Amino acid sequence: MSDAGSRRVRAARVVVPRVARRLLLNELRAAASLGRWVLRGKHGVRPGDLAAAYTGPQTAMMYGLLFVSLIETVGLAFLIPWPTVHRVVLVLDLYGVLLVLALHAACVTRPHVVRPDGSLRIRYGALFDLSVPPDAVASVRVDRRYPEGRLVSLSDEGVLDLIVGSQTSVTLELNRPLPFTRPLGARGEARTIRFHADDPRALVGALRQPA
């Protein structure tokens, strides 16, 4: 990169807060997933890998939210009499609908991945991505839980919950702490990771028996 380009990047980082940059990046990645979803493609899945879906618990909720958003868009189109306000609200509503669809598309096209060498990639759409090397895995088991909290929750003991539809189904014990990045850029370290897979037994079996 040229000196001028480097200066522009540094200036952008100063002007645009880190959280805003992360939000924009997440939205761009999610939007790119729409095309991959239409083409039935998977991001970061190679031949020989096991792709483990995790969208089961949230699919109905996502489509329900999408339906409500569409109803709201149509309803406001008839209720708002001022043309300028109507156009602004319509754009915002359509953007909201697209964002919900893109978030779900990102989750579908970015599954968890177990590689033949026993490494694991844990993801949630474009918001979370953690690679676990095989030598960091102490144990893994099917373990269905229903924790409360946000998408990414970290306890004082280093237990990381990646919650989908208010549940997790796999518990991964680590033999050393692993750093991870939260959706908005904050950092943390996990000693235990609990996450959801629609078929947890298949994921656990693949992780226990690397090729």
Rank of each mutant, 00 (worst) to 15 (best):
D93Y: 01
F78E: 10
F78T: 13
D93I: 04
R110N: 15
S69Y: 09
L76N: 14
H104Q: 13
L66I: 10
V100W: 08
D93M: 15
L65C: 07
M62T: 12
T84D: 11
Y95K: 09
L94Q: 09
L90C: 11
M61A: 10
G75L: 10
I80F: 13
S69T: 14
M62D: 00
L101N: 02
M62R: 11
L94S: 11
V108W: 06
H86D: 09
R87N: 01
G64M: 10
V85P: 01
V88E: 07
R87D: 00
L76D: 12
H86I: 00
G75S: 05
M61Q: 04
L99R: 15
V108Y: 06
V97S: 14
T109Q: 04
V114Q: 13
L66A: 11
A105F: 06
V89K: 05
V88H: 09
R110T: 14
G64L: 08
Y63A: 13
L65N: 10
L99K: 15
P57E: 03
A60E: 03
P83C: 04
V100Y: 12
V68Y: 14
V89E: 08
T59Y: 06
W82Q: 12
L70C: 15
V88R: 11
H112P: 08
M62S: 15
T84Y: 13
A106N: 05
V97N: 05
V74W: 09
T59M: 01
P81G: 07
D93K: 08
V89D: 05
D93S: 15
L66N: 00
